[in-house]
Design a protein around this nucleic acid. Structure first.
Lengths: 349, 349
DNA sequence: CCACAAATATACAGCGCTGGAAAGATGGTT
DNA sequence: AACCATCTTTCCAGCGCTGTATATTTGTGG
């Protein structure tokens, strides 16, 4: 099982190592006859270059790390797919690190772990403070995703969360909702992505002259559909009345749909629901889910552009790219005011 | 930006490289005073070991590759998550390769790409023939996932697809279905996973004395929910009558639920639906989805066990591990015969 | 106070590959 | 036939780290 090395091929072909290396790399100035002989030796021995050794010699790894909270969150799995594809297109391979939103793991990702292993890191932080990140950045090019407060030295790609939440809220208001809830605030999320969305939601209500009602800001224990179900169910049980919900992400929205269905409410007639991320399931829930749609492709492309500039040697201050978003309107919150029951009947449910 | 090397630390601390290395590795026989001095130098310089160099020296990479068709297929993203967690537990990092079911990419994964890069590969093939795989295995430990025909030399983990499909079919039969469709056969899938499921479905019908009807075997163009929608809709339009569907995976099932809903059929009253993979969405569709549940954790653990044995040097013939499965019964195909309309009314829809 | 074992620390040769310098061929000029 | 310029090929010093062999120090008992 001893691996075939460059020198083995060289000996068999009766040439120097470098010539074999040149053949492997398609270096142009190799005489055809020699090239053929070397190739034959390569084939005969089944030679495969040792990438680790090549890396040590060249200093380039050709790999990037993608650090995300959860691989199987639909938003992140869809993002991962696009990143994997873009990486392939640009000649990189991807190491995926799952942080599970654990601050220690997040730190580890940036700290010693990426030492010389990857050419760059794309990182979606959840628990780490921006300042921490800046400190730990040990020279490996880094691009941040998500809503962390603008770091000074680090590149960063995000959508305008405030404005997107504003769009979602306006949409619900336009369709006639007046008691709009927000799902959900999570204690552990300190990067501000939720709070930006909450802020946009509040702004939307205020500009429409609707008074803010703290009761309508629902909290959740974790980022799962189940937590969404629980939060909505509990609000209903508490007697909280609402006719619309802006959800922090699609998983919460999916949970909300279930909770509303189980409690006998119909969507969107009784309660309109807006999700966030426009993940694939949004088109397959029943009713289908209106959802804030970040331009995922733009995020991925922007992230790679920034990363490759850093890899190429850019050492300036952090750039901050805001990519577009839209509202994908589906059945759970249609455009037209389509309420079948009058709002005043709501309490009768 | 010049990286700090072991020798830099050694010089600052006034010791040999190896002593620094020993400190980094917590080698026990280092005098406390020296250890402290070295640690101070490490901290002062911000030294991080170069993993690529370490790899070259040790020959171990501490990485495994996971090659799957699509990162964002719920089954694979859930599997990936578990693999990532198990890998962390066992001290490995994971490179994820997305093959997109492309035979060329699949080949590349096994062929030159893993050269010395990873200690092992976990691979879920879709298009490659088993024989091909055996040929390309260049010495890197390999474990196959999924339903490829038993390879002779390669380790392999799967569930018993025939028996699982049989269970699903029996379940539908027990609840009163008689015209049970199978969704969906895909031309591009040559590994036999679909055909095994189809076989189990047919066996289930036969043992119940139900005649096979080729019309009820629905094909799909690709592995997406949309293709499932299309296939079911088209069958309905063609006038195919059915009161149950066994789906090849949850995405098809989700598409089936949508198509049935859009055509005015209710699930499970008119048509009962069984999915496959028991992905997270199964609990959140409306109605919730009965689904074949492979024991994902068992798959992951078995795969790692086999892989680590190979890494440790096992060179014997391929082992084949069959892990358990169950049927997660939910609303789309409940246990009891719960049909509201009589079957004869079906055509009236 | 010495011999000898155990505990610590060092030296250095690789791991397999690449990059640049240098050597060797080749062929066209004058 | 001597001389370049150009094309091919070889040589060899690293890349940063670890494992083994070896040297040095420390500790113990007689």
């Amino acid at each position: 099982m001893a691996r075939v090395r460059l020198i083995d091929v060289a000996e068999l072909a009766g040439v120097s190592m470098k010539t074999v290396s040149n053949v492997v790399h398609d270096y142009p100035h190799v005489a055809p006859a020699l090239r053929e002989k070397v190739q034959a030796a390569i084939d005969q021995l089944g030679y495969r270059p040792n990438l680790t050794a090549r890396r040590l010699a060249t200093g380039k790894t050709g790999m990037i790390a993608l650090a995300i909270p959860e691989i199987d969150h639909p938003y992140f799995s869809e993002l991962s797919r696009q990143i994997a594809e873009e990486a392939t297109r640009r000649g990189y391979r991807v190491i995926i690190e799952q942080t599970l939103s654990d601050p220690v793991t997040e730190r580890a990702v940036l700290n010693d772990r990426e030492a010389g292993l990857v050419d760059g890191v794309i990182f979606h932080p959840v628990r780490m403070e921006t300042l921490d990140i800046a400190k730990l950045d040990a020279g490996t090019p880094l691009v941040l995703l998500g809503e962390a407060a603008m770091p000074v030295m680090t590149d960063h790609v995000m959508i305008d969360n405030v404005s997107a939440a504003l769009d979602a809220t306006r949409h619900l208001l336009a369709s006639g909702c007046r008691r709009i809830a927000f799902l959900g605030v999570i204690a552990a999320d300190i990067t501000g992505s939720t709070s930006q969305r909450l802020f946009g939601y509040q702004q939307g209500l205020l500009e429409a002259g609707v008074q803010l009602n703290p009761e309508l800001v629902l909290t959740a224990s974790e980022f799962t559909a189940e937590a969404g179900v629980h939060s909505i169910t509990e609000a209903i049980d508490r007697g909280v009345r609402f006719d619309g919900v802006v959800c922090r992400d699609d998983r919460f929205a999916i949970g909300a749909l279930k909770a509303l269905h189980d409690s006998g409410r119909s969507v969107p007639e009784d309660v309109a629901v807006v999700g966030w991320d426009n993940t694939f399931m949004a088109a397959y829930t029943s009713p289908t889910l209106t959802s804030v749609a970040p331009e995922k492709t733009a995020i991925v492309v922007a992230a790679f552009n920034l990363l490759e500039e850093r890899i190429a040697g850019y050492r300036g201050v952090g750039r901050h790219v805001i990519v577009g978003h839209s509202l994908e309107v589906r059945e759970s919150a249609p455009l037209a005011p389509s309420r079948l029951r009058s709002r005043t009947d709501f309490t009768a449910l």
